[in-house]
Design a protein around this nucleic acid. Sequence first.
DNA 1: GTCTAATTAGGAATAATTCTTGATTGACTA
DNA 2: TAGTCAATCAAGAATTATTCCTAATTAGAC
Lengths: 144, 144
Amino acid sequence: MKLDARQIETRTQELYEKLRAAGLKVTLQRLAVYRVLLQSHGHLTAEQVHQAVARDNPALSLSTVYNVLETLVKIGAIGEITTDGGTKLFDRTPGDHHHFIDTETGEVIDLDDSAGVKLDLNALARRGFAVEGAKLTVYGRRKK
Amino acid sequence: MKLDARQIETRTQELYEKLRAAGLKVTLQRLAVYRVLLQSHGHLTAEQVHQAVARDNPALSLSTVYNVLETLVKIGAIGEITTDGGTKLFDRTPGDHHHFIDTETGEVIDLDDSAGVKLDLNALARRGFAVEGAKLTVYGRRKK
DNA sequence: GTCTAATTAGGAATAATTCTTGATTGACTA
DNA sequence: TAGTCAATCAAGAATTATTCCTAATTAGAC
């Protein structure tokens, strides 16, 4: 699901705020990388980000992409997930949320509240586990 | 949680059967790698398996460890999980089950049925997702 | 015991990510 | 509107984990 122009505008404003709040500079490279993620379907590898960025900014190096992505994750502007194969994907949407991975296409789909997944971890607390977060990945096929 | 001698014996018998069923040879290397996992706390990297195996079998190479681990995963004798950092861990216990990762120690703990985690994915089916499997990883701290 | 395909050892090759260093730049100040 | 400087970036070397390659070895059938 792609974001529309309005959402991209809003999210870009948020990036400005998050960078300032963290005392970091607003650079062309950070904007470019962030916008590529916003304009994508949501989940890209560092390499894919680099290729997409390179269309408009051929000089932007891969190591800078890694750098910027790490920074953006750190300030909570984007998220990061690791798939079973070990591939790291950068996620337009920050914060805890669940994912569905299509086993045929490899496509990653965000499962937000409307997906209706019910997860109850209360029993863990009673067994001595202090829960801080949880990540759920569901595998299967999406019917069109 | 470590397995006792009886459980290790039973699981070793199972390995023989699974290898035969798959038409594969029972080799000293496969037994050694498998036993290291059985005797561990349950989740090891390939490197850790290699080091543990090397105590008794210094000649057993790292590439063989990778080879054997892949084979054991393929025949369903052991499992494989990928942590958030991207580290691959080999899991004494095969098949779908959930995990708890202690954010302080990094320790991985299996959450079996007795942990009481409730997960309901039925709503996904109604939304066009044909679920084949699901992996849940819970983060937090375990109180002693 | 012999035979043969499967398996292994050892090291080279690969892929993804991180590190290093000198050059460049954004943002503050005057 | 330019000067200053710490932050940031580009480029490529280094590292890490894993896979691949090939010749030598071995399990299991006969």
